[in-house]
Design a protein around this nucleic acid. Structure first.
Lengths: 174, 174
DNA sequence: GTCTATAATTTGATAGAC
DNA sequence: GTCTATCAAATTATAGAC
């Protein structure tokens, strides 16, 4: 029996670091050297896991969406709005982090297309899960209004450095 | 009598170009060289008008806020929500531009403090004008919800490349 | 997988002539 | 005001040894 490998999981650590940076300050606010230093390797080694920054950006966005969607999927439609709200609120409480795809969307005019596509995928899936044809679901138009308010409320919390701003802005939700 | 100078107004042109870039892709997505080329001067000349990029960023944010606030101020409180909505909608229709301070807010964790302060000033003034103690005004908490929805709706329009997304997301407003 | 070394380019910024 | 020339630093990325 092969002894279980103690994997370094550097790819995962690099994505963690990149996600943190993007959610704090955007796609153009970090370099491979910074990520490398945080993970404890050299920047040339980052290219081993992610050939280009575009590859890394797309991978991070994809993982973010998959993770977010998984949380929503295991809930019934009637409580998904609350689940979204909770996820966004907790993001802010974690070092004032924004929604990854919200940040990327606001920068998207100069973003590689493959990254922009991942951003769109995030919102497509969220809107779909909020407006499923089941009990407790809302219309697609209502779902648009909900996601808009959540993204904006997170932004305001960041501006004012207070969850209170998020809570007050989203009071009407659910 | 001095002959009227035909001013080049390069400072204004540089701010225009910088604002366009920030609203499309963020603070870190443009360089002095790019701006210079667009205005038709050299990058070293940009430093004559704005010694550092921080100075330029702060000036652009300040001008944006002053301009936005001026439009709201000349309206009565009862129609200011509609005026905000119209301004944001028209921003999107202009090459899919975001709210300058919305973009900067999402990048603000790595932004010079003087720029972050201008961003906060924008939201302070907007919230103040929407919740003035006059007929037609809303509470400050309601104003937070309105600004949040507008910022998020603009983001969604960008994601989907369609004003329709903005219109549907903001249908509940006013 | 991780490193050293390095290339090629871009960046924000300065000095100083005109 | 605008330019040329230049700098130091940072960036993404590659080649090749171990």
């Amino acid at each position: 029996m092969a002894r279980p490998r103690l994997k370094s999981n550097n790819a995962g650590k690099l994505m963690d670091a990149a996600e943190r940076h993007i959610r704090q300050s955007g796609y153009n606010a970090f370099s491979f050297r910074e990520l490398a230093k945080e993970v404890g390797i050299k920047s040339s080694s980052v290219h081993y896991y992610f050939p280009t920054k575009v590859d890394l950006g797309a991978a991070v966005a994809r993982r973010y969406t998959d993770r977010f969607v998984a949380v929503l999927q295991e809930k019934s439609p009637s409580v998904r709005i609350q689940a979204c709200k909770k996820a966004f609120r907790e993001a802010y409480l974690t070092d004032g982090q924004m929604c990854l795809c919200g940040v990327l969307a606001s920068e998207s005019a100069a973003l590689p297309e493959v990254v922009a596509l991942e951003v769109r995928r995030f919102f497509d899936l969220c809107l779909g899960l909020l407006s499923e044809r089941k009990e407790g679901a809302v219309t697609r138009k209502e779902a648009l209004g909900i996601m808009a308010k959540l993204e904006g409320a997170l932004l305001l919390a960041r501006v004012y450095g207070a969850v209170q701003a998020f809570d007050e802005a989203t009071r009407s939700l659910q």
